[in-house]
C-alpha cells in the first residue's frame, strides 16, 4: 500500500470504491497559456465503504467535483488510479466497459431541474436504466420495479407519480427521481455532487434522511459532496475537508466539527450560519477589509507552493510556503495536514 492510503479505514473492511493518489491537471489552451495547467487535484486518496457516508467538504474550486468526476470516470486521472472492489479500473473506453462500471457506481447531480429530461414521463426516465442494465424485462416486471423505485424514494402513492413529467414535480421531488434513477442500476456506490444545494433549506433534510436510509437499509457507500459542513455533520460518518485540491483534514464527522484541527476547517465552521452564536456577526471585531484578509481560494493555474492555504492562514510560518505538511494522525481517527502540529519544523 502506498504511504498515503487510509490506515484508519481498515476497521471498516475493504473499500468498495477507492481513489489512490489521484492527481488531475487540466492543460490550458489559448494564446499565452501554452504549457500552463490547472492543478485541480493534488495527490489525493479517498476510500468509500459499504454502509458509510463520506462527506467531502470544500468551497467552489476546491476540486471536490473534479474528484467526484474522476470517480465517475468522467475524467481520467492524470496520475494515480481508481479501484473498484480492490481491482484497478481500466479507463473504460467501450460502452460495455462503462456500463459495467456504472452498474456499480452511480451519480446524483446538483441540479434536478436540468438532470431530468423534460420531455419524458417518470415511467420512461426510470425504465431506461432498468432496461440498459438488464434488471427488468417485460412490461409488467418493468412497471413493478419502477413502482418499487418510486416507493423507495418516498414518492408515494407511486402509481400517481409514475406518469408525471418532471415539470409537474417540486425540486425536492425531482431530486428523489434522480436518486431513484441512480438506484435503478442497483449500484453499490452513490456519488452525490451537492445533491441538496439547489433545494430549499426546508426540503434538504428530507433528501439527506433519504440518503441516510439508503445507507442503513441497503448498505450503499455514499460520497456526499457539499460546502455545508453542518449538513455533513448531520448525516455523514466521516468528513474530509478539501482545500484548493489538497485534502487537509479528515476524521469522524463529530470529531471534525467539534474539534477542528486544521485552520481552514475552523474557518469553514466559523463561517457556517449558526443561530446559537449570539450576535457574533454584528459584534465581530472591526475587520480590515483588504483583499488579503478577505482572501479567496487561490488560482489553481499558479497555486501557492507548500500548503495552499498558507496565504490565508493565521498560523502561517515560513515553512508553510515551502512544502506541503506531512500527515499528523490522532488517536480518534482524525488526521490533519498542518505544519503547526510538527513541533520540530514549525518555524
Amino acid at each position: 500500500m502506498p504511504a498515503s492510503a487510509e490506515p484508519v479505514l481498515e476497521a471498516h473492511g475493504e473499500p468498495v470504491l477507492e481513489a489512490r493518489d489521484v492527481v488531475k491537471r487540466f492543460p490550458l489552451h489559448g494564446p499565452g497559456q501554452h504549457g500552463k495547467e490547472v492543478h485541480a487535484v493534488e495527490p489525493t486518496s479517498l476510500a468509500l465503504h459499504a454502509g458509510r457516508i463520506t462527506a467531502l467538504v470544500g468551497e467552489s474550486g476546491s476540486g471536490k467535483s473534479t474528484l467526484a468526476r474522476m470517480l465517475a470516470l468522467a475524467y481520467p486521472p492524470t496520475e494515480g488510479e481508481i479501484r473498484l472492489d480492490g481491482a484497478p479500473v481500466k479507463q473504460a473506453r467501450t460502452a460495455r466497459g462503462k456500463r459495467a462500471y456504472y452498474r456499480q457506481v452511480q451519480m446524483v447531480f446538483q441540479d434536478p431541474f436540468s438532470s431530468l429530461s423534460p420531455v419524458h414521463r417518470l415511467r420512461y426516465i426510470l425504465s431506461r436504466p432498468l432496461q440498459l442494465h438488464g434488471h427488468a424485462s417485460g412490461r409488467a416486471e418493468l412497471e413493478r420495479q419502477i413502482l418499487d423505485l418510486l416507493n423507495r424514494v418516498n414518492l408515494t402513492p407511486a402509481d400517481q407519480f409514475i406518469d408525471k413529467f418532471p415539470h409537474e414535480l417540486s425540486g425536492g421531488q425531482r431530486q428523489r427521481v434522480a436518486i431513484a434513477r441512480a438506484l435503478a442500476a442497483r449500484p453499490k456506490v452513490l456519488l452525490g455532487d451537492e445533491p441538496v444545494s439547489m433545494l430549499d433549506v426546508s426540503i434538504r433534510l428530507d433528501i439527506l434522511n433519504l440518503l441516510g436510509t439508503l445507507r442503513d437499509d441497503e448498505g450503499l457507500a455514499i460520497l456526499y459532496i457539499t460546502h455545508d459542513i453542518a449538513g455533513a455533520r448531520y448525516f455523514a460518518d466521516e468528513i474530509k475537508v478539501l482545500y484548493a485540491g489538497q485534502l487537509v483534514e479528515s476524521g469522524p464527522a463529530d470529531a471534525v466539527v467539534e474539534q477542528p484541527r486544521h485552520p481552514y476547517t475552523r474557518l469553514l465552521l466559523e463561517s457556517a450560519p449558526d443561530p446559537d452564536r449570539e450576535g457574533a456577526l454584528l459584534d465581530a471585531p472591526e475587520v480590515v477589509d483588504d483583499e488579503e484578509t478577505l482572501g479567496e481560494p487561490p488560482s489553481l493555474v499558479d497555486p501557492p507552493a507548500g500548503c495552499r492555504f498558507h496565504p490565508r492562514c493565521p498560523l502561517a510560518k515560513p515553512v508553510c510556503a515551502t512544502a506541503f505538511p506531512p500527515r499528523t494522525q490522532f488517536d480518534d481517527g482524525q488526521w490533519v495536514h498542518c505544519w503547526s502540529y510538527d513541533e520540530e519544523n514549525y518555524r
Partner: peptide, 21 residues
Amino acid sequence: LRGAFPPLHGPRREITGIPGS
C-alpha cells in the same frame, strides 16, 4: 423552518424537514 436546518452543536439526532411542499 427553524427545525429544518441541522445544528452545528449538540448531539446528532434525526430531524425532519417540513413534509410536503
